[in-house]
């Protein structure tokens, strides 16, 4: 068995091109509702705390992934935090080069144990450092719509 013949001329290598149209709604859940409402209405970060594990989740979850307890203790964290890592991204979602570098970071908000993934702004590439202190900049209140993009970016605390 096995293949006795193969397509051996490039122009005879036929292919059909297709695409998959997919549209979805992703509900934010109980914890997500509260997280985004706090941002929209008060420009504040809400997290959930597991007293057993001494761990604060931001974004919040209604259960602790460490001990599996149900979480209902809400705490306010941030809006300042510490950069745990950063990267300067130079490619667009489709893989083509970006015109302007995009700085992304892991930000551990004060009081949180988890990190938020977001952009850094108003910072020079030579100023970037793991451990730098940053704070959240929110969109003007009337423009907020309950999305992670209600946070414009994080900027250095002393900016």
């Amino acid at each position: 068995m096995a293949l006795l013949e193969k397509v051996d001329k490039n122009i005879e290598a036929r292919a059909w091109q297709g695409e998959i149209p997919i549209q979805s709604r992703y509900t934010c859940g109980l914890a997500g509702e509260k997280f985004f409402r706090e941002i929209m209405e008060n420009g504040r970060f809400a997290g959930t705390h597991c007293a057993e594990c001494e761990y604060t989740y931001v974004p919040p979850t209604i259960y602790c992934e460490r001990c599996f307890a149900k979480l209902d203790e809400w705490v306010e964290v941030g809006p300042e935090g510490t950069v745990q890592s950063f990267t300067v991204l130079l490619v667009a979602p489709d893989g083509t080069p970006l015109e302007e570098p995009d700085i992304l970071a892991l930000i551990q908000l004060d009081g949180a144990d988890s990190v938020l993934v977001h952009r850094l702004g108003k910072v020079g590439l030579d100023e970037l450092a793991i451990g730098m202190r940053v704070k959240a900049v929110f969109k003007p209140k009337k423009e907020r719509e309950g999305s992670i993009l209600d946070i414009v970016h994080f900027v250095p605390v002393n900016a």
Partner: peptide, 25 residues
């Protein structure tokens, strides 16, 4: 994650950049 990460519209290789930077540091 469609709610917390995807709206940033960043090429996912940024995750490797973040992890590599953290690992090196």
């Amino acid at each position: 994650d469609p709610v917390y990460n995807r709206p940033l519209r960043a090429n996912p290789h940024f995750i490797a950049g973040l992890e590599m930077n953290r690992y090196l540091c």
